[in-house]
Nucleic acid binder design. Sequence first.
DNA 1: CCTTTTGTTCCGAATAACGAAATAAATGTT
DNA 2: AACATTTATTTCGTTATTCGGAACAAAAGG
Lengths: 253, 253
Amino acid sequence: MNKTVVKTLELLQLFITHEQLTLQEMVKLTKLPKTSVFRMIQSLVASGFLKKDGEAYELGLSLLQFGCLVAERLDVRKAALPIMKQLKEETNEAVNLVIKDGDEAIYVEKVETSEPVRVYTRVGRRAPLYAGACPRVLLAFMPSEEQKKYLDHVELIPIASKTIVDREQLKTVINEAKEKGYTVSHSELADYSSAVAVPIFNHEGKVVAGLSVVGPENRFQPSYIEQLVPQLKHAAEQISKALGFIGGKNVEL
Amino acid sequence: MNKTVVKTLELLQLFITHEQLTLQEMVKLTKLPKTSVFRMIQSLVASGFLKKDGEAYELGLSLLQFGCLVAERLDVRKAALPIMKQLKEETNEAVNLVIKDGDEAIYVEKVETSEPVRVYTRVGRRAPLYAGACPRVLLAFMPSEEQKKYLDHVELIPIASKTIVDREQLKTVINEAKEKGYTVSHSELADYSSAVAVPIFNHEGKVVAGLSVVGPENRFQPSYIEQLVPQLKHAAEQISKALGFIGGKNVEL
DNA sequence: CCTTTTGTTCCGAATAACGAAATAAATGTT
DNA sequence: AACATTTATTTCGTTATTCGGAACAAAAGG
């Protein structure tokens, strides 16, 4: 492995949370010597990953190009988008598609609603697997061994007011999800927002994505959720089928 | 500057044209020693910029995250999107937004049409400044000194059947664009597709983007173009105004 | 005018990258 | 089943490159 490269790309990660940064600021944040940071920046600028805007630096347009390529190449996304749009028409709620990336969930597609009260999620956003309906559905249906390992080691950090921080409670919720085939969250990732999520399986019967309907908490009463679940399940089935998943025999969970 | 980093990010660029690559293939393409390529890949994987999919490697989801951040942070894009949608409604043609990135133009936003015959452009796509209506409008309205330098050094490579490859012809077309305030292209970037483009100015009176309407060549007859131009100009004016551009005094061209 | 802050260049020391070659793993062939 | 072949991964001594303190430059502030 190449230390310099990894360090440089770590530096780039600062720009996830900071729109603009000067050399000075990066030095402070990384606690690396000024000269080293300077060199790294130079390299990133030369590659178009960073660009200088007056005093400060910001993310370069190369990243836009790469990002769009990734989005376009995602098979699940291709299969899901039309069905997501249809689901949005049926429910008139925002629909999200999330996939697993290591120990995190990442939002790869969204279909917005026209409702005045909306929940805003950004494509590319990351969340831990334990928080939020959609990430947790990925966790619930992952291979049990991997799941166990994750649950034993994960540190449960609160993100919003009702983020689950108790390991036992999390396990209970996961088991319920496996049983019922869906999971619900209220104010786990953002206050006053709720979601219902179901899993999407590929041709091998492995969960590859989570599909969710998101909206303001006050609208997501039990009766409404009961109504959403079959719609969600139907959509997820269609997507799973498009990915080559056959039948309901949920292979070894 | 940091050679290893630059080389590694160059390696990553291979994935712009190749969806998947094995170690072997990368070695062949780069002509670099196997061990070096191996190390670079490891570093990219560790940073989430690349991921292993069975035998081969492909772009990682980190890039999706970065790409979305870049898209979201672009001011022009924010200002333009609603007006682009409106323009699409008026014309029922695809609308593109392009900005300059070094010696290239990059598509940063698009609004698709519902027409059965469509021209497909991908967000994040790059094109040289001399080819296509939208890139060329950026070239036409850039500071004259910079423009001269570009025109003196650029190598005109044909991309589609009618790409302009004659320097004198290009200069003529650019002068016409400056005079008329818009430019037209037919089959310059892709065969059978045409576009009409106008410039967008920022608060300093500098061109920051090009706005274009794109469609199949057979539909883009002179009479139709004449009809599109005022609609485009009106939209571009609105966007420019939103960016703080005041009045028609086109500061030093 | 001097002080302070921020960016950039220099250069010797030390480390981290380099790449040939060996090894391992997987695949194909006789 | 044994062998050949292709592709991925590890090892290791050499050397080029990165490293980072310090000096320098440029701009901003007092």
